[in-house]
Design a protein around this nucleic acid. Structure first.
Lengths: 169, 169
DNA sequence: CCTCGTCAGTTGACGTGTCACCTACCTTGC
DNA sequence: GCAAGGTAGGTGACACGTCAACTGACGAGG
């Protein structure tokens, strides 16, 4: 990841790169994306020994609860919007650390279930409150409702354009 | 990086995670950060053989121009807001591909200059227009001026809180 | 029942990022 | 001039992501 605020003026002059206002927003977004991720990751690592990726996997698993049907790898990948390959690698690492387990799927011999281990469950339960607090502290405590709505609208607009580009591409 | 839209409701109930509006904004931000980075990276890779990280390094170098004093590694790290270790690794990889070179620094025998090779210069000059176009297409063509300003304001507010948190330790 | 296309999931190679640590050099104070 | 501490930069180990290729199982058509 992770690119950084740069003006680009040295290499891009025609057609004009971005106007002043756009450049400010763009650099802001890049900086926020990079630092927020770094800071949240660092805190989560420091006080729970988890990465953001671990956290997301564990949250997705714990949301099914013990009662529900166990999650298939592909379902989990869908929920996380991850590539299957990335998830497979990550599950291998998490399995090595005892956070999750894999189980055979009786209905489809190709398939596999992913299950939350007791260790994984207690890790996520311990980690979540501090993570939530960090997001509040670093992000939402500094924004009013109107800003939050405006931000969401921007995100929706950008996501729509990305989706368009990909379906057209 | 890159975490994904998740509700977290299963693990976080008290104090209440985020309200509806905050959750929408948060998930939006995470999705935008992840997909925009992925899409821009993919395009840059596909049509110029560069990663976003390569691009940023090359832009920073090319902004000094041939006339200016060559960049010290630490200066470059500062400009990019990268850790020195990360930059050192990345320069090694880029050097292997012939995009940049390192030169001894006469004033300080510990130091090193980073220089843009002809290959690197032509790579960045070729890559920049399409990258700019992609940012326009995916981001700014879908936003009006008010949205762009609002977005920048949100970024500034979040960055300020992150900076506060870090200086407070 | 067999085969051909597809699907679930894994693997290996490789580029990337971080942390901890190291070396070589500079600088300051004596 | 020299010891002590700081600085510039690099290195190795390891976690993470992506791409392409692979294995084995499913499932529809003949």
């Amino acid at each position: 990841m992770m690119c950084q605020p740069l003006a680009y003026d040295g290499v891009v002059t025609e057609p004009r790169w971005l106007d002043q206002r756009q450049q400010r927003a763009w650099r802001g977004h890049l900086a926020v994306a990079a630092r927020l991720q770094a800071e949240l990751n660092r805190r989560l690592q420091a006080d729970a020994g988890l990465s953001l990726a671990d956290f997301d996997v564990l949250v997705a698993l714990s949301e099914r609860g013990d009662g529900g049907a166990p999650l298939r790898v592909t379902e989990l990948a869908e929920a996380l919007q991850w590539e299957k390959s990335r998830l497979s690698h990550h599950l291998t690492r998490m399995q090595r650390r005892g956070l999750v387990g894999r189980e055979d799927c009786p209905d489809d011999a190709r398939g596999a279930f992913v299950v939350l281990s007791p260790t994984g469950r207690s890790a996520i339960e311990q980690a979540a409150p501090a993570h939530v607090a960090a997001v509040r502290e670093l992000v939402f405590d500094g924004l009013d409702d109107a800003q939050v709505d405006a931000w969401a609208a921007v995100s929706d607009a950008v996501l729509a354009r990305i989706a368009d580009a990909q379906s057209a591409g």
